[in-house]
Design a protein around this nucleic acid. Structure first.
Length: 303
DNA sequence: CCCCAGGTCAGAC
DNA sequence: GTCTGACATGGG
């Protein structure tokens, strides 16, 4: 099945490769992945997305929702603070969207993310899917593709089976959380209907899930617009740009971002994150240099 | 050899 | 409440 969707101001490559999802690979000018058990190929052609899937029928709602094709994107960007760093981030990230992922896949993936580089998270997730996911229908002569393994399947694994996927000390976290979800002791679908703070508290009770990973899931899977993951990159950015020569506690930091970045602060967070990771010219994931940070901080009035 | 990566946890004050 | 080191693995 094929279809074409309008996608104005949509940068597919940035969206799929910015570290919010881990299963997309560039293939022959497009991107291939598996969304909720369905193999998909996406190609950006100007202001449209050409999509190809194997499943029969005309229903593309699952993909439209995943890609968030129907949101008013310019209206979101318009709510960002108009300071120098955010304007630079906007330029660098134009068209970067947030996806709406499956909660279990997102949760499990980010449990595997702690102190790992994005490339390595991709490798771990790929191995995990190949070993414990199920083969999904693919086009003729295409390489095999796998669904993301269910919580039930991962709960049934031995810890050493998971460690064999190179996830190291994260293996018991993933296994225990999978068990809790599989036994229905935590209701992932219900979490999406809670207010943000309650939803976060629920997630944080899970082994291997702290504030940062909870916020990733709240933002990338449940779509809470003000969930604001603070990782090492964002921490560096916020300290350098907004707290020069001060030492805010994590709590003060969260209070600042929730009041400063507006009703779509989660989006703003992803823009800062991607900007920081790609700011140095010449290196694909080089990161902002100290001199760049200095230029931004001492350049002009930020507020 | 070193340091770091989309952190979390238990144990120490 | 805040601070510290341990936890696997791979890249630079």
């Amino acid at each position: 099945m094929r279809a074409v969707f309008p996608a104005v101001c949509y940068d597919l490559a940035k969206t799929l490769n910015c570290g919010q999802a881990f299963r997309w690979r560039p293939v022959r000018g497009g991107w291939e992945g598996v969304v909720e058990g369905r193999w998909v190929r996406l190609v950006q052609a100007g202001d449209t997305l050409e999509v190809e899937a194997v499943q029969p029928g005309e229903d593309w709602d699952w993909l439209r929702r995943y890609l968030q094709l129907e949101i008013d994107f310019p209206a979101i960007v318009a709510t960002f603070p108009r300071d120098i760093p955010m304007q630079l981030a906007e330029q660098a990230c134009r068209g970067l969207r947030l996806l709406r992922q499956d909660p279990w896949e997102c949760l499990a993936s980010f449990i595997l993310s702690s102190t790992k580089q994005i490339v390595q998270i991709q490798q771990i997730v790929e191995t995990l899917c190949a070993r414990f996911g199920e083969a999904v229908p693919v086009p003729q002569d295409h390489a095999l593709a796998y669904s993301f393994p269910t919580a039930e399947r991962l709960a049934a694994c031995r810890e050493e089976d998971l460690r064999a996927c190179k996830m190291g000390f994260r293996a018991p976290y993933l296994r225990e959380t999978a068990g809790i979800v599989a036994r229905g002791e935590s209701d992932l679908a219900g979490i999406g209907r809670l207010p943000l703070e309650q939803a976060r508290e629920e997630l944080i009770t899970l082994p291997g899930v702290g504030r940062k990973i909870a916020d990733c899931v709240l933002l990338f899977a449940y779509g809470f617009p003000t969930a604001f993951p603070v990782d090492v990159w964002i921490l560096k950015a916020l300290r350098g740009l907004y707290f020069p020569r001060r030492r805010p506690t994590p709590k003060q930091m969260h209070e600042f971002v929730s009041s400063y970045f507006g009703p779509w602060s989660g989006y703003a967070q992803q823009y800062l994150f991607h900007f920081m990771r790609t700011a140095r010219p010449g290196t694909p994931a080089g990161g902002a240099t100290p001199s760049l940070m200095n230029g931004l901080t001492h350049g002009r009035n930020l507020h």
